[in-house]
């Protein structure tokens, strides 16, 4: 999952927050999944660390993220509809299907047949 920041779509903090909360609420980020550190995400997106720290604090206040000393920032257990294991397995399936040039419908069919 890649998130981006573009200069012509509003404040970087808003863009980052919208994308992360979108990934959590749609189940693409599972319960308990670890997020990158503030410093790593800020460096990757070329924004100030304070911007990312503000976003994380805001998402924590919304109940989407939890931060614990020593274990970093994770998706809150109450926020995501699916577990981390299911989200990761779904990403692996999507990646493998794309590598084999399957369409979304074909990938869903595979999943349905193996259910």
């Amino acid at each position: 999952m890649i998130i981006t920041v573009s200069p012509d779509q509003g404040s970087p903090a808003r863009q980052i927050q919208d994308q992360i909360s979108g990934l959590i609420t749609t189940g693409r980020l599972g319960r308990g999944e670890r997020l990158p550190s503030v410093r790593q995400l800020a460096s990757d997106l070329d924004v100030a660390p304070g911007t990312v720290a503000k976003v994380y604090r805001s998402l924590e206040a919304d109940g989407l993220l939890v931060s614990r000393a020593g274990s970093g920032t994770r998706v809150s257990d109450q926020a995501a509809p699916v577990s981390s294991a299911v989200a990761q397995a779904a990403r692996r399936l999507a990646g493998a299907a794309r590598r084999d040039d399957l369409s979304l419908e074909e990938a869903v069919l595979v999943l349905r047949m193996t259910w």
Partner: peptide, 10 residues
């Protein structure tokens, strides 16, 4: 130039 950030800790 970064194409975005992968949302996983490195």
């Amino acid at each position: 130039t970064t194409a975005g950030a992968l949302l996983a800790p490195r």
